[in-house]
Amino acid sequence: MPERLGLDRIATPIGTALLVTDADGNLRALDWHDYEHRMRELLRLHYGPVDLTDQPAPAGMRTALSSYFEGDLGQLAGVAWRIAGTPFQQKVWTALAKIPVGTTLSYGTLAAKIGMPKAIRAVGHANGSNPISVVLPCHRLIGADGSLVKYGGGLERKRWLLRHEGVEV
Rank of each mutant, 00 (worst) to 15 (best):
P2G: 10
P2Q: 09
E3D: 05
L5V: 05
D8G: 08
I10D: 07
A11Q: 12
A11F: 06
T12L: 07
I14D: 10
I14W: 06
T16S: 08
A17V: 08
L18D: 02
L19Y: 01
V20H: 00
G25L: 02
L27H: 01
E36K: 06
E36Q: 12
M39L: 15
R40H: 10
E41K: 05
L42E: 07
L42H: 01
L43F: 05
R44V: 13
Y47C: 12
P49D: 15
D51P: 02
D51T: 12
D54L: 10
D54M: 11
Q55R: 10
Q55E: 11
A57R: 04
P58N: 06
A59S: 10
G60Q: 13
G60S: 13
M61N: 09
R62I: 13
L65V: 14
F69H: 02
F69S: 09
F69K: 02
G71Q: 09
L73W: 07
W81F: 12
W81C: 08
G85H: 01
T86L: 05
P87W: 05
Q89C: 01
W93R: 00
T94S: 11
L96K: 01
L96I: 03
A97G: 13
G102T: 03
T104A: 05
S106Y: 00
S106A: 03
G108F: 04
G108S: 14
A111C: 08
A111R: 04
K118F: 07
A119Y: 01
R121I: 15
H125S: 13
A126F: 02
S129N: 15
I132T: 07
S133P: 00
S133K: 06
V134T: 12
V135Y: 03
C138V: 06
H139W: 06
I142S: 04
G143C: 11
G143T: 11
A144V: 13
G146S: 08
L148G: 05
L148C: 07
K150H: 08
Y151F: 15
Y151S: 06
G153K: 02
E156I: 12
W160Y: 15
W160I: 11
L161K: 04
L162T: 12
E165Y: 10
E168G: 04
